[in-house]
Write a protein that binds this DNA or RNA. Structure first.
Length: 676
DNA sequence: AGTAAAAGGTTTTTT
DNA sequence: ACCTTTTACT
């Protein structure tokens, strides 16, 4: 079935009788091994529906099960329970949640929803004393999530991770209390709740029933699980459950989400009698690339001892390229990408990686200017942009007229409607009531909207009426298209660039075209949001060739023939926010390691000497940067290049620099002649 | 009272 | 570029 497994991989596939931890270095065939193990389990006669496969993304699960399906004769793979911790929690809680007081129809808030709710609660509760600036709602939601997922006290989280918010401790407590209460009364769960409720059920009287569901549990990316997820794994295992966890502690990069490699290091304590298998042969990268990666990783000892070796000894020496500034870097990378394409390497075989989404801003402009198609992963998602959320809120009301969060957003789009009017309208429409008739009442004219919004309110009522009509059934795509007209009416008040945003909605309509029901469309969108960034230039057609731009986090588990890493400067990598503490710094180092090990054949590390002081800079203020402290000690493993060309443009010969020509005077004279 | 418009700040990474 | 706070206006 799976040909050419090496001895260690085969051992990992065949092992039975005790919990198994596979320590799998980057590019060592982890996915293949895990898929082969699932196949072996099925061939041994297991019922596929009693296998649980937990992965970090839904895409990873799909990929793994596709490999299983490719070699199995019946449809066994489709019956395996595969997905993320969160999507699995979602499925289980629909079945078992009643015992925990959950209605089976509970709603799941994604991060954006949870943040909005936090914002609403905050205004409803009134905020702290005047003069003191309160943390933004994203930060409030971040503190909350950090606190919950690490199971730490608020005071400790504030002290270690959000010291600049420590002043607002009491207000935060008030907001968190109200936030939790509101989630419960509205039968709504956020991401953290999904895990907490799942863990709670395994420890409850129906824990045995849940443990009886599965005989085999497999977990991918175990280094990126948090303490609650580790509890869940323990809670789902009977003494005889066949457990297999796979991970690489050298690639642990989700500490900010409270993930901890302690789960791997303490595996043998959590599961007595556990066996460990280590995969060290790398099938992805050439030896020169691995040499750099190993040398970088060697600067930290926060991981299992492990040295990757490659079956591909020969290869190009990685390049370390210094640029004068950010725009020189963008130009150079664009040129390098095109050069590689000339040599026969398609754009899809190349990627540009960076630490933070905005690091690619300049490059995106340059790529657009040169008509190089690209797709960006990470950073602000398409679904998170304000106008898309506006339209989704309209759809969500149609889907569930009791969705208070969606109503809140939609009502506030109208002229003259602020927080106070939203609250009054909510009461008049009876959104709090369980009878689900708020939408019908609104269409019939309930709710006194301000006169400034007369036209908009009428349009909204009409649009809702048409989209909820059942007689000639309206497809989701048609509904999006109809609601777009309402958007066209209100966007000019909300946004500076209404036309572009209205046009952007078309993209959503074409996505909706793949679905027959509105409900399916919405569910799929929250459970499996497209990870691509909104981007007008996007991939025009799927059969076209395009370049990948990605944050390092989003690049986890992927590989390209050529990788261009940008902004390898101290302060960017490592991020200056991590400089303070040792563990933060170690995580940044692993992040660098993850980036380097994505490359198969060619690796270029780019480094601009100057970059903008801050992210939102409108001015031209720069700081001078040092090469990343992780790269500097291993410089000799690179071929170094300096991007002379660009520097020469900006720093003319001394002879010329001293010369003065009277051009400015001539221009001024010319201008003056226009009005004198 | 309550909203709009103008001013002033802004800690990455994401299921 | 977006969010929060302040102020000015209805």
């Amino acid at each position: 079935m799976f040909d050419s497994l090496n001895a260690e991989q085969q051992a990992a596939v065949d092992h039975t009788g005790s919990p198994l931890l596979i320590v799998a270095g980057a590019g060592t065939g982890k996915t293949k091994t895990l898929a082969a193990r699932v196949c072996r389990i099925i061939e041994d006669g297991a019922d596929p529906s009693r296998i649980l496969l937990l992965t970090f993304t839904r895409r990873a699960a799909a990929e793994m099960l596709a490999r299983v399906a490719a070699v199995s004769t019946d449809r066994a793979a489709s019956r395996v329970w595969g997905g993320t911790f969160h999507s699995t929690a979602n499925r289980l809680l629909r079945n078992f949640g009643q015992s925990a007081g959950l209605s089976p129809g509970f709603t799941v808030l994604d991060q954006a929803d949870a943040t909005d709710l936090m914002g609403i609660v905050r205004t409803d509760e009134g905020f702290g004393e005047r003069g003191k600036r309160f943390p933004r709602k994203e930060t409030v939601a971040g503190i909350y999530s950090r606190m919950v997922s690490s199971q730490a006290k608020l005071a400790d989280v504030l002290e270690t991770d959000y010291p600049w918010c420590a002043d607002h401790s009491d207000d935060l407590k008030t907001i968190f209390t109200a936030y939790t209460a509101r989630k419960r009364t509205h039968q709504v769960l956020d991401y953290d709740d999904l895990l907490l409720f799942w863990r709670g059920l395994t420890a409850s009287t129906i824990g045995d029933a849940m443990r009886d569901l599965f005989d085999h549990v497999l977990i991918d990316e175990y280094q990126d699980t948090n303490p609650i997820q580790a509890d869940i794994v323990r809670g789902m295992c009977r003494p005889d459950t066949d457990l297999c966890a796979v991970g690489d502690d050298a690639q642990a990069i989700y500490g900010f989400r409270a993930a901890t490699v302690a789960n791997m290091w303490e595996f043998a304590d959590h599961f007595p009698g556990a066996t460990r298998v280590t995969l060290e042969q790398n099938y992805r990268s050439t030896m020169p690339i691995l040499a750099v990666a190993n040398a970088v990783l060697g600067q930290s000892d926060e991981h299992f001892a492990k040295e990757l070796w490659s079956s591909r000894p020969q290869g190009l020496t990685p390049i370390l390229r210094t640029h004068h500034d950010e725009s020189a870097q963008s130009g150079s990378v664009a040129t390098a990408v095109l050069d590689a394409r000339e040599r026969g390497m398609d754009l899809r075989e190349q990627a540009v990686l960076f630490r933070a989404g905005h690091h690619a801003d300049g490059l995106e402009l340059e790529l657009t200017r040169r008509d190089i198609p690209y797709v960006k992963y990470g950073g602000l998602k398409y679904l998170e942009s304000a106008h898309v959320k506006d339209l989704l809120a309209l759809l969500r009301i149609l889907d569930n007229p009791a969705d208070q969060l969606a109503w809140h957003r939609v009502l506030a789009t109208m002229e003259g409607v602020g927080p106070a009017t939203v609250r009054r309208l909510s009461d008049e429409l009876g959104i709090e009531r369980e009878d689900d008739d708020a939408l019908a009442r609104f269409i019939d004219g309930a709710g006194r909207t301000p006169s400034a919004a007369d036209e908009q309110a009428l349009e909204l009522r009409t649009a809702f009426a048409e989209c909820s009509a059942t007689e000639p059934a309206i497809t989701p795509a048609q509904q999006v298209d109809r609601l777009k007209q309402y958007c066209a009416l209100v966007f000019p008040n909300r946004y500076d660039d209404p036309a572009a945003r209205v046009a952007d909605i078309d993209q959503l309509a074409s996505t909706a075209a793949a679905y027959t029901t509105r409900s399916r469309f919405l569910t799929e969108l929250t459970l499996d949001p497209p990870s691509k960034t909104s981007d007008q230039a996007g991939p025009p057609h799927l059969d076209d060739d395009w370049l990948t731009l990605s944050t390092i986090h989003s690049a986890k588990g992927l590989e390209w023939r050529s990788v261009h890493l940008i902004h390898a400067a101290d302060g960017n990598m490592p991020s200056e926010m991590a400089l303070g503490d040792e563990h933060g710094l170690a995580e940044e180092l692993r992040l660098m390691y993850v980036a380097l090990t994505r490359a198969k054949d060619e690796l270029t590390v780019n480094f601009p000497l100057r970059f903008h002081v801050n992210r939102y800079a409108t001015d031209d203020r720069h700081v001078y940067a040092q090469l990343s402290r992780f790269v500097d000690p291993v410089r000799e493993l690179f071929d170094e290049e300096t991007d002379r060309r660009e520097i020469d443009l900006r720093e003319p010969d001394a002879a010329l620099a001293g010369a003065t020509v009277g051009v400015a005077d001539e221009v001024d004279t010319l201008l003056a002649s226009l009005w004198d």
